[in-house]
Simulated assay, not measured.
Amino acid sequence: MIKLVALVFFLFIIKQGFAQEQKDKYYPNSSILKESGSLDINGYPVGQWKYYLQNGNITYTINWDTNYLRTYYENGNLKEEGTFIPDTGTHIGKWIVYDEDGKIISEKTFNENGIEITSKSTTK
């Protein structure tokens, strides 16, 4: 019996630790989605979140587990992508910037303090 109680308690704790709530937020007086993603039990965003413009097009996505950001042009093509520090917005690691047609414009690498350590640009 003690083992059963311990197992139930353990499963309850695990469920609470991994509980997530889907959160969809809409523009005021509209059915147009503004942002969508999951919150952990403490109300913090987890996993992939998507953010939209008022015309319904995606503007950016963030994976809050990895702090990976992708921004998009209004035409839906990828604009830039890379990892950042959420508290400061500081770019870290490799960042790639694209033109509106999806071609790479530049690639930059930043250290853990956000200082650019390499840069490569392409010309049209």
Rank of each mutant, 00 (worst) to 15 (best):
I92M: 11
L39C: 08
K103W: 04
P86T: 06
F18D: 02
G37S: 05
T59D: 12
Y73T: 01
L78H: 00
Y68T: 02
E80A: 10
K94S: 08
Q54P: 13
N57D: 13
A6K: 14
L69G: 01
D40R: 00
S121D: 13
Q54A: 13
N75R: 07
P45V: 02
K103V: 02
D65C: 08
G102R: 03
K108M: 06
G114V: 08
Q20S: 10
I32C: 07
F12D: 03
G114W: 14
D40E: 07
K124M: 07
F10N: 09
F84Q: 06
S30V: 00
Y52P: 04
L69D: 02
T90V: 13
W64A: 05
D65Y: 08
S30M: 05
F18Q: 15
T109P: 03
L11Y: 11
G37R: 00
V97D: 09
L69M: 05
I115R: 00
F10R: 09
I117P: 07
T66W: 00
Y51H: 15
K124A: 02
F110A: 03
K50I: 01
G102D: 05
I13W: 10
K50H: 10
D99Q: 01
E107S: 13
F10H: 12
I115Y: 03
S31A: 08
F10M: 11
D99S: 04
L78F: 06
I2K: 15
K120R: 14
T118W: 05
G89R: 10
N42K: 12
G47H: 00
D101L: 13
H91C: 06
I41M: 09
K25G: 07
I92Q: 11
E21Q: 15
L11V: 14
T122N: 13
K23M: 14
D24Q: 07
G114Y: 10
G102Y: 09
E100F: 09
F110S: 04
S106G: 09
F12Q: 04
F110H: 09
F18V: 12
K124N: 01
E116Y: 01
W49I: 08
G82W: 01
D40Y: 06
I85A: 01
E21T: 10
V8Q: 13
I105P: 01
A6G: 04
S38K: 12
G17Y: 10
S30R: 01
K120W: 03
K124E: 05
I115K: 09
F9A: 13
N55C: 03
T83L: 04
E80F: 00
E74M: 15
N63T: 05
I104G: 06
S106C: 04
L78Y: 00
W64P: 00
V97I: 12
I58D: 04
F12G: 08
D87F: 15
T83I: 06
T122P: 00
N63Q: 10
Q48V: 01
Q22D: 09
N111I: 03
K79E: 09
K50N: 14
Y51Q: 10
K3E: 11
S106H: 00
D24F: 15
F10C: 14
N63M: 07
G89M: 14
K103D: 04
N67H: 05
Y73L: 04
N113A: 10
N111A: 02
S121H: 14
T90I: 13
S36A: 05
G43N: 10
L4H: 12
T59E: 15
I41V: 14
N67A: 06
Q54M: 11
L69I: 01
I62N: 01
P86V: 09
L7V: 15
T83R: 08
I92L: 10
T123M: 11
